[in-house]
Amino acid sequence: MQLYAIQCRAGLLLEWLVNTRTGKLLRGPLSEKPGIRVLYVTADGEHALVKESEARETDGSWKPPKQFTSVIAKDIEEADPVPDSSQDHYRRSVEELYDPP
């Protein structure tokens, strides 16, 4: 299934030490790096996923990594269902930015 990037947000990626059994935060943040979060959605707006990656800092601004892609392919199991109330907005966003099949 194809997913289309419709929103990017720059911010800090924080690394924490977490107890894997309980999910409790033990210590952190251990590191702060410039990052980018991208919301990808299906053309019908019914599924979405967020991918985080490190950003490049260039001339005082943050840019996506060189390997950034605006359309990705993933198995349906990797994406989350989108609430009905957001599906129309996501579908229209894909139509405005892309020419999906």
Rank of each mutant, 00 (worst) to 15 (best):
G60A: 11
G45L: 04
A5R: 07
E46C: 03
L49A: 00
V18Y: 12
P83H: 10
I76T: 12
V38N: 08
E15Q: 08
Y90S: 01
Q7V: 02
E32Q: 13
D75T: 14
S86E: 14
W62D: 00
T58I: 02
E57S: 11
W62R: 12
A73L: 01
E54C: 02
A79T: 08
V71A: 02
G28S: 08
E32V: 01
I76Y: 14
E78A: 13
G35Q: 07
V94Y: 01
E54I: 02
R91W: 10
Y90C: 03
R21N: 05
L97V: 12
T20F: 03
D80M: 04
I6M: 11
S86P: 03
R27H: 12
V38A: 13
T69C: 06
A73T: 12
N19P: 06
P34S: 14
Q87F: 01
K33C: 03
P81A: 13
E96Q: 14
I72K: 01
Q67A: 10
G11E: 12
V94L: 06
A5E: 04
V18C: 07
P29N: 04
W62I: 05
F68S: 00
S70H: 11
E77D: 15
V71D: 11
S61P: 04
L25S: 14
P101T: 02
E52A: 05
E15K: 11
I76G: 06
V94P: 01
W16H: 14
A55T: 06
I36W: 01
E96S: 07
T69W: 00
Y40F: 12
A48C: 05
D80Y: 13
G45M: 11
Y40E: 14
E54F: 03
L26N: 08
A5I: 01
E77Q: 12
R56V: 09
T20S: 10
E96P: 05
S85Q: 09
A55M: 07
P81N: 12
D84C: 08
E15V: 03
A5D: 10
A10T: 04
Q2F: 03
C8V: 07
P101E: 07
V82Q: 09
S53E: 12
K33L: 02
C8Q: 10
R21E: 07
D59E: 15
L97T: 12
H47R: 15
S93V: 00
S70P: 00
P64D: 05
M1S: 04
Y98T: 04
S31E: 14
D80W: 09
K74R: 15
R21Q: 11
L30R: 05
W16I: 00
P29C: 06
S86N: 10
G35A: 14
S93C: 09
S61W: 01
L25P: 09
V41I: 08
S70E: 13
K51P: 04
P100R: 09
V94C: 00
K24Y: 07
G45A: 03
Y4R: 03
D88S: 06
P65H: 14
S53Q: 15
G45E: 02
P34V: 09
E77C: 05
P65N: 10
T69P: 05
I6R: 00
L13V: 09
